[in-house]
Design a protein around this nucleic acid. Structure first.
Lengths: 227, 227
DNA sequence: ACGTTAGGTCTACGTTGTACACTTGTCAAC
DNA sequence: GTTGACAAGTGTACAACGTAGACCTAACGT
């Protein structure tokens, strides 16, 4: 039974390590992801992890890959290019949304991991169909992807503490700080304090972000076609 | 001479500390900004810094404030709102551009420091003039600002090593990795490898980013006015 | 039966942020 | 003047981090 003996021999598995590292980051933040901590969770010596990851950056890359693997890329249809692009970007955001605290780790892995490459290729296809040159499609695509990662990464509240009490306190403190501003000098900021601290709906937040990205692409397309 | 004695007494000055911390970050990256390192530069014990910053986050916040202080906000004119908005966002990006490695530190300080608040208030003014509700203006404004910070932070090459030889090597390696992809599977990515690794012109990169942001805002404005 | 090797352990080093107790130079008030 | 308070810098110390390097050991191919 070669498989079983192998299983007993190798107690650690890079996939599972990346998965539990991701879970740890989701609940306690990226700074909680520590070689020692992860080793402890798997009842293993810290140095054992280095048999599977060359260094910590390698582990973080694995977390990024783990998230990108969850992209459910929609099949090409015969809808208009912008409709399809929106669907693709929505799928991308959907894959990252569960992990706002570490979404930025996905960025460096897009042009490395297969799901990321597939996403990039499909995006460029649609942009070229829209009328962009290859180079413009590359630049526009990168900036859009980048914006969306930031959208997830900056999801309001993701930076805050994990425990709901502390988070509520932090939000209250922020709101108070904004409310304490002189309303005569900053009428709009004080008026919008609540929304600035935490948007009304997370879904609306994401929809707005994707809308902005797609609308931006459509906008510069018509602009650049004129010249 | 009370001033002189005071000057000799307080060898450290939070402003100067923040400035040299920013310079250090610009040349060697954020991870080079260390309490010990900064203390050494000022010929002082590490713990001395804690008389002026409550902890390291406080120091990083000061770096963010230092950058925001460089915003040269244009005076209101009677041009169209989108022209003025573009000017404001350009001024914002211009202030951050010299510091791509630490631009993200500015984000959390916008609604705290005066120059950031002024930027936010002016931005909201213009968005409301454009036709957004107060709440929408807040959300759109935040996302746009956020996008632009990321634009600077992800300026191609900013993450790379500081010394030009190592940077050139890294770029070459990246290009090679993309060129090694199967062109049949990823025709567009391989075709655009050069641009994906490093855009042709940094100025064009920033102009595209700002164009995308403004065009996105204009786009969703017409969208939402219809419903 | 036996070397090879993959996977985990143990120990140790240098670096980080920072808590705490201390000295010292300066000024206000008596 | 003397004194007491106080702000600023020092010295020592600790826990946590990433990781280098030598070791052990159990399974595998031959």
């Amino acid at each position: 039974m070669a498989t079983i003996s192998k299983e007993t021999a190798r107690r650690l598995d890079p996939e599972k390590l990346a998965t539990s590292a991701l879970a740890l980051a989701d609940t306690e933040g990226l700074e909680a992801v520590t070689i020692r901590r992860l080793a402890q969770q798997h009842e293993v010596t810290p140095m054992a992890l280095y048999r599977h990851f060359s260094d910590k950056d390698d582990l973080l890359a694995a977390i990024g890959d783990r998230m990108l693997a969850d992209i459910a890329l929609p099949e090409p249809t015969d809808e208009r290019w912008d409709v399809q692009l929106r669907a693709i970007l929505t799928a991308f955001v959907a894959a990252l949304r569960p992990h706002p605290k570490v979404a930025q780790l996905a960025l460096f892995r897009i042009l490395v991991t297969e799901p990321g490459l597939a996403l990039a290729e499909r995006t460029m296809e649609l942009l070229i169909e829209a009328g962009f040159s290859v180079d413009d499609a590359a630049e526009v695509g990168r900036q859009s992807i980048c914006s969306l990662i930031t959208l997830v990464n900056m999801e309001p509240g993701s930076a805050e503490v994990t425990d709901p009490i502390g988070r509520e306190d932090a939000l209250r403190a922020k709101r108070a700080a904004l409310a304490a501003l002189p309303p005569r000098r900053y009428p709009l900021i004080t008026a919008a304090a609540d929304v600035l601290v935490c948007p009304t709906s997370t879904d609306a937040y994401y929809e707005l972000g994707i809308d902005l990205a797609v609308a931006g692409i459509c906008g510069i397309l018509t602009d650049r076609q004129q010249h």
